[in-house]
Design a protein around this nucleic acid. Structure first.
Lengths: 198, 198, 198, 198
DNA sequence: GATTAACCGAGACGGTACGTCACGTCTTTAA
DNA sequence: TTAAAGACGTGACGTACCGTCTCGGTTAATC
């Protein structure tokens, strides 16, 4: 719950007063997610979220400082990262990760991420939170590449970060800007281009 | 002026009544651009644009169909594409193009493009217009790569589109999502990764 | 339209731009009055007024600066003052005026005036407007008393203002505070007490 | 403590459990009164009263059923009625009472009573409580007038209630509505008008 | 001494209304 | 016909206050 004003997960001294309802947390996030899927992030209104969650607006604003903070958390709660499975070889690991990623890119509505990217330009808190989320999603791929270096499948002096960006960047670019194809064949051709030996 | 409802530049039959003011076009675009820079795209309001341009809102909406259409045109009018100079070799051309592009990425405020990307998710007209713009900006790089094929610097069966995405994508990805470094050294290292022989 | 921000009745230089809708004025006042009667002033909400008048809240707030300013104007538009009829004698005039006044006091819901009195304590604009209204309603009785002085039915040195307060005050006091009887017989007994000769 | 849900002062059977804190009673009333004077009754909020009194809102609502009930009690606790002194003659008694009353009217902020009057229109409990308070404040004057009848200074068939209203009403009327003068000279002139012989 | 019942401060809760803002459209008069 | 000015309906925003409800913890009278 990164963007929350006071994360409920951190337990400090026993809080005084009536504790915040955990049910409300769940109901709000669920309502926000459902609405985002149904009508899109742009048309999502806090009144409607409150109404669906059976909660007052004040209860939402007690937890999240803005609409976008809520959306970010809702998104985060919904998307689990690609699993970090080890298939024994760099090629197999990469193919698995990238296929999974492209499948997700194709399925989901395209408006949540663009919305968050924009908001992050104005709201530092969202910026931080979005950065965390990106880091979290990159982690498995980073592990795959580092394992490749350890195994000797990649040179010791590989710039892992840049390699990662070269593998992910083209898909993000197509998704957000060019509208170009995103599928298995592109994965194969990109791998052939960037990592010819694999 | 791609998104305009009726482009003033195209002259059809001589129209009746008071002609549209050409000054207004300029003033509106200038005001929109200035505001976008000052307060950001998100906080830009049409009332304020009208007020700054010394123009009524109706005058704006007679020319552009929506706020985003105006912003898109304002953006377009401000950014001239990277020049299509021929330096004689693929390596020189690429280095020139990418350096220029990274320089622009570093300088400009980062909020106009993200905003348009988001809006394009909802508004097909903006989608089309944004696609045009992207195509327009990709054109010089596409020409460079095709020239490379003609010169024999690249294999004949090169997937030029994918190669282009592999060169641009990482920068877009860093710019919009990871916040990673964007500079000359990255250009060099990316070229070394994707086109080792250059 | 005393409390309006810019009274539409005062014509200064010809106003530019779209003029304010006179229909909206009427509809808003009517809706406010109807609601005040139905649910009371306290339970009257601006959203409901707007909805009933088929008007947006912004349109209301463009004309009146607050809920209370609107209520005051609505009240004023609804209550015509007691007619200033001349029955030929002080006694007849007074009996007519006071009977009429007591009848109105008994009929109307009792919450509008109390509400305005309270709000006037905090809002100087309402204060002024309420004072005007009170002056306006006192005028006929003042005329009656002054006519009594001219006719010689009252001493030349009569403190007309105080006499007026002595005739009205008891009724106001009963209405607002004691809940005491307000009827014809009280009018007679009060006249016998304050103006024994009449 | 008239409006209290369960008056602490009346001791019935000894209650079980922790007794209510008498300190809290005092602190709450003091805070309410201070706030009413500072910001006015309208802007007085229960959260702020609770905060100032160092008390929880629940503690307040355990004692008073509503904001207005609290305000009424706070008002009552602050204003002691005019003393019922016997100066030997009707004229002296009246002059003393009315002078005292006018002095209080001039001094105190004018917003507490108007507020209560309004609320009493909607809340029967406040209505009852306010009526009690009014009766309590009228009592000394009523005694004065009845003593006047006993002494023979007033006719035996005097309508004492109406006479009282004729003496008080004009001041209340001026205070709440006309904004007219309230001072010693008015007292004298009113007495000369209503009770010429005194 | 243990139990129990009512209290306590803190503060979260659902609800409701507030007054503001921006959008894109509409209606004036003037050029 | 277009222009500037500005009012219009729509609909969401985030805030404030109401009176109620949990919390963990305290304070007497009763057992």
């Amino acid at each position: 719950m990164g963007a929350m004003t006071e994360p409920a997960t951190v337990f400090a001294e026993p809080r005084r007063g009536r504790p915040r309802s955990a049910d409300a947390d769940v109901a709000i996030l669920a309502a926000a997610l459902a609405l985002a899927v149904e009508v899109g992030v742009r048309a999502l209104s806090m009144d409607e979220v409150a109404s669906r969650a059976g909660v007052s607006k004040a209860t939402i604003y007690r937890r999240w400082s803005s609409k976008e903070a809520l959306i970010l958390d809702a998104l985060r709660s919904a998307i689990e990262p690609v699993g970090a499975v080890d298939h024994g070889s760099l090629g197999a690991d990469l193919r698995h990760y990238l296929s999974d990623m492209t499948a997700r890119m194709t399925v989901s509505r395209g408006d949540v991420l663009p919305h968050l990217i924009e908001v992050a330009c104005y709201d530092p808190a969202i910026r931080t939170s979005l950065d965390d989320w990106v880091r979290h999603r990159r982690a498995p791929l980073l592990a795959i590449l580092e394992r490749g270096v350890e195994r000797g499948e990649l040179p010791v002096d590989t710039d892992v970060e840049l390699l990662l960006d070269a593998l992910i960047g083209p898909f993000v670019y197509r998704r957000l800007l060019t509208g170009g194809a995103i599928d298995e064949s592109v994965v194969e051709r990109l791998l052939a281009l960037v990592l010819p030996g694999i």
